[in-house]
Simulated assay, not measured.
Amino acid sequence: MAEGGNAGASDESLKLAVAISLLRSKFMKNIKDCNAISPSQSDTLLRWKRKAKERKQEILRLREDLKESQDASHCDLFPENASCKCYFFGSLGELNPKHHVNDSENRFNDVLRRRFLRQVRFKERRRRVGSSSQQRLSLGLIEEDETEQLKASVDFLVELCETVSAVSVDDSKFANLAHQAVDFISVSLKNLLSTGRNPEPVEGIINSLVTRLTRKMCSYLSENGSQHTGTNAQFCIQHLLRKLGSEPYIGQRCILSVCQIILVLAERLLFSDPFDDIFPDMHECMFIMIQLIEFLVADYLLEWSKAEDFDTVLLEDWMTSIIQARKALELLESRNGLYALYMDRITGELAKHVGGVSLLQKVKTDIFNRLFH
């Protein structure tokens, strides 16, 4: 009996040992299978490691740029609340303003320009937070795509105009940033046009700028209705378009766009109820746009004509649009004769310039003659 008991115990021990051995073998096999990575999994792992490394480097670069921007702000010669000495809005509403720039103003403008570039970089980076794009915008620091710089400056100026009000028009910070934005857009546009490459994106950006600012200038055209209190803010945006219009590429497109809006607005005024609540906004919008055309023609037409790349085809287009706008406003003479009177003043100024400049005499004869009829 004792021998039988020992044999049974030995069999049980043997079975247990075999079971443990099998489990251990299976466990080791599973570990090897887990450690074995397929080529596709290996590529994925390397790609994620590379992305993590790039993200870490990007964070380090952003920290360095932030530190550099903070350090540069202490190097300015003037305090943050320094007023704009360029009198950017000093000629608001004046016809043919004259202002002479001296060396001290140029020195001050350099300081304001650095502040403007820091503001644009900050807003552009905040807009790109969470984006997978690795493209960096470093205006004024490294050479990058001029088109992106132009687009960023345009977006900055339009967003700046979102905050404009009767109070902020007199705010020195708003004047500083608006001035530098206009100057930077002009410089970037000149650089892009000088290359002569791929003009379609540039034209799209400028057309978008003109359209967006025009809508903000006229509360009637705004999607949210009247957004500003008083007319100071509207005249402020008109002044921005006037300053931007010093560049013929912008100014001519601005006149063409405004004339087309006048044609649409004139038709609506013709069939609108004068006692409608929106009628005063339409009336005010009309005068602001007519005045903008007069400013651009009187201030810059002679200067535009001296440019080597002056677009006479575009000139004929907006001259035709002005003639059409005048005829459309003549239909409103019974309601408000000032519309036609102001347009006659513009066409008279235009005829005087066209007849006195040799380059502008390339305009088609029939278009020129229609200015007098």
Rank of each mutant, 00 (worst) to 15 (best):
I59E: 02
I59F: 07
I59Q: 09
I59C: 06
L60R: 05
L60D: 00
R61C: 09
R61K: 04
L62E: 11
L62H: 08
L62Q: 05
L62Y: 08
L62D: 11
L62N: 07
L62W: 04
R63C: 01
E64M: 03
E64G: 03
E64A: 07
E64N: 04
D65P: 02
D65V: 00
D65I: 00
D65E: 13
D65Q: 02
L66G: 05
L66E: 06
L66Y: 03
L66I: 07
L66T: 14
L66C: 09
L66V: 08
K67W: 01
K67G: 01
K67M: 03
K67C: 02
E68G: 04
E68A: 15
E68P: 04
E68I: 04
E68S: 10
E68L: 11
S69K: 00
S69V: 04
S69G: 10
S69I: 11
S69N: 15
S69W: 08
Q70H: 13
Q70M: 15
Q70V: 15
Q70R: 07
Q70N: 15
Q70W: 07
Q70I: 13
D71M: 03
D71Q: 11
D71R: 09
D71N: 11
D71Y: 03
A72S: 09
A72G: 10
A72R: 06
A72D: 15
S73T: 13
H74I: 12
H74E: 14
H74L: 14
H74A: 14
C75N: 01
D76I: 01
D76C: 02
D76A: 08
D76W: 06
L77S: 13
L77Y: 01
F78I: 07
F78C: 09
F78R: 03
F78M: 05
F78Q: 04
P79M: 03
E80C: 00
E80W: 05
E80I: 14
E80F: 07
N81G: 01
N81S: 11
A82Y: 04
A82F: 04
A82W: 06
S83D: 10
S83Q: 14
C84R: 12
C84L: 02
K85T: 14
K85R: 10
K85G: 13
C86R: 14
C86Q: 04
C86S: 13
C86T: 12
C86W: 12
C86K: 11
C86V: 13
Y87Q: 13
Y87I: 08
F88A: 12
F88I: 09
F88T: 08
F88N: 01
F88D: 06
F89C: 03
F89P: 12
F89H: 14
F89E: 03
G90H: 06
G90V: 07
G90P: 06
G90W: 04
S91C: 13
S91K: 10
L92Q: 07
L92R: 11
L92E: 09
L92Y: 02
L92D: 01
G93K: 13
G93E: 12
G93D: 13
G93Q: 15
E94C: 06
E94F: 13
E94V: 14
E94K: 13
E94W: 05
E94G: 02
E94M: 12
L95Y: 07
L95T: 14
L95A: 11
L95H: 01
N96L: 15
N96I: 13
N96R: 14
N96V: 15
P97K: 01
P97A: 00
P97G: 04
P97W: 01
P97Q: 00
K98L: 15
K98F: 10
K98Q: 12
K98R: 05
K98N: 02
K98E: 10
K98Y: 03
